[in-house]
């Protein structure tokens, strides 16, 4: 079980771009992390991986996998200490594989890091079967440019699975793919999550994908978590006005109105985030208390919570 507590990521001595983010991912569960571009989703995921770019650093909070603190460890340090089996796949399968190495070599490399005694080529073939790549033996000797985008993302998943991860982080893994291929990859992730009993952190800006795939959802805005809930309650009865606003922006095929709804204004940039609730300036329910001080945590359905003074569907006593 992966547990993130009060995670803060900052730019050098500059502003915090991820603030006090906490969530848990249970084995076999897919947590969808939703937010607009620039909301801090990707930086949260890179922080969990220990892969933040050199200009960014974790300045508070912790990341625990089971009982081990892996907060400040880079992946190679995690391997050395034999802990923190968290793997990641990325948005751009086209550029995420080394163009001059054969697919097989890149998978075998990942196998050998975690299990030096394994028969790497046999295991690489197993992994390609696992991610449903046909004709595995032949594909192992292909170069990345010889594969399609969907195939490359499957290879990325195979590389990620080489360490037998407890948690897989998927950062918008289907955004760059065709819709049909997208569905196949989503199906594969769901299937692997169930069969390998692996937790998945699925990052996306697409609420439709979340509704289809995730068990639980965390909604992020301007570096903070606005609302966390099981997928059912979140779509039926969102607590936070921002969550409700995002859903109103989903295209509705039955609506006659040709203009889709939008949330007025734009997300604040790091360093310009207002005091109090960061969403207050764009929120039609906001009033004086929203603009300063701590925002209280409110609860809805079991497992549903949000930070809001004036939630939409609060359930008393929850």
């Amino acid at each position: 079980m992966l547990s993130v507590k009060d995670l803060v990521v900052s730019v050098g001595r500059g502003p915090d771009i991820v603030r006090n983010v906490s969530f848990r991912i249970e084995p076999g569960e897919i947590l969808g992390l939703v937010g607009e571009s620039g909301s801090g989703k990707s930086m949260t995921s890179l922080a969990l991986m220990g892969l933040l770019p050199p200009t960014l650093s974790i300045s508070g909070g912790s990341v625990m996998l089971d009982d081990t603190d892996i907060t400040y460890l880079a992946p190679y340090q995690r391997v050395r200490r034999n802990c923190g089996r968290v793997a990641m796949i990325f948005q751009e399968p086209m550029t995420s594989l080394n163009p001059v190495l054969r697919v097989g070599d890149q998978i075998e490399e990942a196998v050998q890091v975690h299990d030096p005694d394994a028969n790497a080529s046999a295991r690489a073939r197993e992994l390609l079967d696992l991610v449903r790549i046909p004709d595995a033996a032949h594909q192992l000797s292909a170069y990345p440019h010889e594969l399609s985008g969907g195939m490359r993302q499957r290879v990325m998943i195979a590389i990620a699975l080489a360490c037998r991860p407890r948690v897989l982080i998927a950062d918008e893994p289907t955004t760059a793919l065709d819709v049909t291929v997208q569905r196949q990859v989503l199906g594969l992730i769901r299937e692997l999550c169930d069969s390998l009993h692996m937790g998945v952190l699925f990052i996306t800006h697409d609420l439709g994908v979340v509704a289809q795939l995730a068990d639980r959802v965390a909604v992020m805005y301007a570096g903070e978590l606005m609302e966390t809930a099981d997928v059912g309650p979140l779509f039926r009865a969102p607590l936070h006005p921002y969550t409700a606003g995002l859903m109103a922006c989903l295209p509705n095929p039955e609506s006659d109105d040709p203009i889709m709804a939008t949330i007025p204004g734009s997300a604040p940039r790091p360093g310009e985030i207002p005091d109090g609730c960061p969403f207050a300036p764009r929120c039609d329910r906001a009033s004086a208390p929203c603009r300063s001080g701590l925002v209280p945590l409110v609860h809805g359905a079991p497992g549903q919570s949000a930070r809001c003074h004036f939630p939409l569907n609060e359930r008393a006593g929850a």
Partner: peptide
């Protein structure tokens, strides 16, 4: 991006550089 992938695998920094 593929260098980030290599780091994510957990291989040593010196090997990331060389390979």
């Amino acid at each position: 991006d593929y260098v980030r992938t290599a780091r994510a695998k957990g291989i040593r920094p010196s090997r990331v550089v060389l390979r």
